[in-house]
Amino acid sequence: MSRFDRGTRRIALCGLTTLSAVVLLFSYRTSTSAALPEAAAAPDTTAADAGAVDTAALPAAAPPGGGARSGWSGTVTGPVVQVKWGQVQVRATLSGGRITTVDVLRHPDENARDRAINAAAVPVLVRETLQAQSARIDMVSGATYTSTGYVRSLQAALDQAGVA
């Protein structure tokens, strides 16, 4: 009889553990905000780029021809953003205040792994930008540093154009 009680206790303990895990899993709140967390927007400083100037922190210039205009047309180039694995720079072409083309001028490509990651990530980032018509896009999993640099350079370019 004591063996049956021991087995019953094990089953009850396993059931309660499973129930607790399911409750904790469903109570976990994921982020639904499109805004970047402060940690992702912070510059990545390493010993290798200690001498690099973070141009993304510089104030953005007014769009060519004067103040902020939502219907501005032209091409703006964002600053070179230093990330852990290299540099990222974006150029955006706008027509009537809408983003029509995004060119990634620089991205990490020092080795085959960097090239493979960014060959997959860059088109996704560009597509998301064209759909969102802003720099408020999701990061690409596996290319977090490139995504962060892309968003910072793109936002600086859009700031230059006076586009929100």
Rank of each mutant, 00 (worst) to 15 (best):
S95D: 15
G97L: 09
A47D: 11
A119L: 06
T101L: 13
I137Y: 00
G51T: 05
M139H: 08
G97K: 01
P59A: 08
K84L: 15
F4A: 07
M139Q: 13
T146N: 09
L154E: 02
L25T: 07
S95Y: 06
S134N: 07
T32L: 12
S31T: 13
R6G: 00
S27E: 10
L125P: 00
S141C: 06
A40D: 12
V81L: 10
A119I: 02
V23G: 06
F4R: 14
R152F: 08
L130Q: 01
G66Y: 10
S2Q: 14
N111R: 10
T45M: 11
S73H: 09
A50R: 15
A62Y: 05
A120M: 08
Q160V: 04
V53G: 02
L58K: 14
A61R: 13
L25P: 00
I99Y: 01
V126F: 04
A112C: 04
E128Q: 15
R113A: 09
L16V: 01
V140W: 02
L154I: 04
S2F: 12
L24V: 10
T30H: 14
R115G: 01
F4H: 10
G78T: 00
A161F: 09
G15T: 02
A48G: 06
G96H: 08
P64D: 13
P64S: 13
L19R: 02
V151T: 11
L16Q: 05
G86Y: 01
F4L: 14
V104P: 04
I99K: 00
V53T: 14
A135E: 03
M139S: 13
Q87N: 15
G74R: 03
T32F: 12
G66N: 06
G51A: 15
R10G: 01
V81E: 15
T46Y: 13
R152T: 02
T18R: 10
T144H: 06
P37K: 12
D159E: 14
V90G: 05
T75R: 11
G96A: 09
N118W: 01
T77V: 14
G7V: 08
L94Q: 00
V76E: 11
P108A: 10
E38Y: 06
A39K: 14
M139V: 15
R29P: 01
L130E: 01
D159T: 06
G96L: 10
V126W: 00
H107F: 09
A116C: 02
E110W: 07
R136W: 04
T93H: 12
L105W: 09
S141A: 14
A21Q: 12
S147N: 08
A35M: 13
E128V: 04
S33A: 14
T75S: 15
M139G: 03
F26K: 05
V102N: 01
L105E: 07
G74L: 12
P79Y: 07
M1N: 07
P59S: 09
L154F: 08
A161C: 12
T129F: 02
S147V: 04
A161E: 02
V22D: 06
D114F: 01
A56H: 04
F26Q: 10
P108E: 05
W72E: 03
G162F: 07
S2T: 11
T32E: 13
A50H: 10
D49Q: 11
E110S: 14
S95G: 08
A12V: 09
R115W: 00
Y145A: 08
L25Q: 05
S31G: 10
T30K: 13
T129Q: 04
G78M: 02
Q160A: 06
E128D: 15
L58T: 07
A41L: 13
V76S: 03
D103A: 14
S31L: 10
D49M: 11
N118S: 05
